[in-house]
Amino acid sequence: MEGVLFLAAAVAIAVLVGIVYVVLSESVKFFAAVPIGDFLTDTRWTPLFEDAHYGIAPLLSGTFMSTLVALAVAVPLGLLTAIYLSEFADARSRETIKPTLELLAGVPTVVYGYFALLMVTPLLQRLIPGLPGFNLLSAGIVMGLMIIPYIASLSEDALRAVPNNLRDGSYAMGATKLETAFRVVLPAAVSGVVGAVVLGMSRAVGETMIVVIAGGQQPQIVTSPTQQGATVTAFIAQVALGDLPFGTLEYQSIFAAGLALLLLTLVFNLVAFALHRRYREAY
């Protein structure tokens, strides 16, 4: 049995190696033509224009900005929801609300994209005068709403998995429900919560359609969420579904962009892994 289990787990390595191989083998061709220095330091990303520049920074800044906005929306809302459902709500409402929230993860992202463009952006424009019709703020907020269930649902599971004797101990010491939730249950469940946040974040980093529709797609270094911008995934989708011939440098630029994204997620995960190790509580 152990052998079967090991093989199942080893599939994960095979998949990652496969992705790295596909991305790397094409990137090698790309970097044969474009110096890595330009890729890292150039501030313009215009591989599809006649005056081609290959600086990844604008795309990364777009990805960072939209993800940041999404997390600013989703982490507080998702965690509050999880704590509320796990520690305060009665079983019946929990069992209705949680799956309903999970529906948010099932809404097709094209729908979210048009929701951002046609509903959220006009609303924001009333609050922030001068906000352009395409911006990362609106795309990021909607992305945040989309990832709420990832964070809420998985965090709630982690919170519920904390044994009741920890809660009982806390109550016996005179703590209120809220104090128990935040000081006892949440720290005990932190590894699950971090996992949930990382999952939500990776979904935000990898989200394509919302930014393509509502974010503006103009690759520039983004310093404020009110600007329009393009993300790495938006660029990859645009090229992969576009009319460029395969095998050209323009086409290979998506693999270089993909490589950057892969490295980015690697860094995120190392950070999360470190946090996880540090705060994981055994009970």
Partner: peptide, 25 residues
């Protein structure tokens, strides 16, 4: 020349998004 263009415009894959952009600006 093909691909020779200014870069500071809003490119969209979905022409309905362009419709929306032009109709509201």
């Amino acid at each position: 020349t093909a691909k020779s263009s200014r870069t500071d415009f809003t490119p969209t894959e979905d022409d309905n998004v362009t419709v929306q952009g032009v109709a509201t600006n």
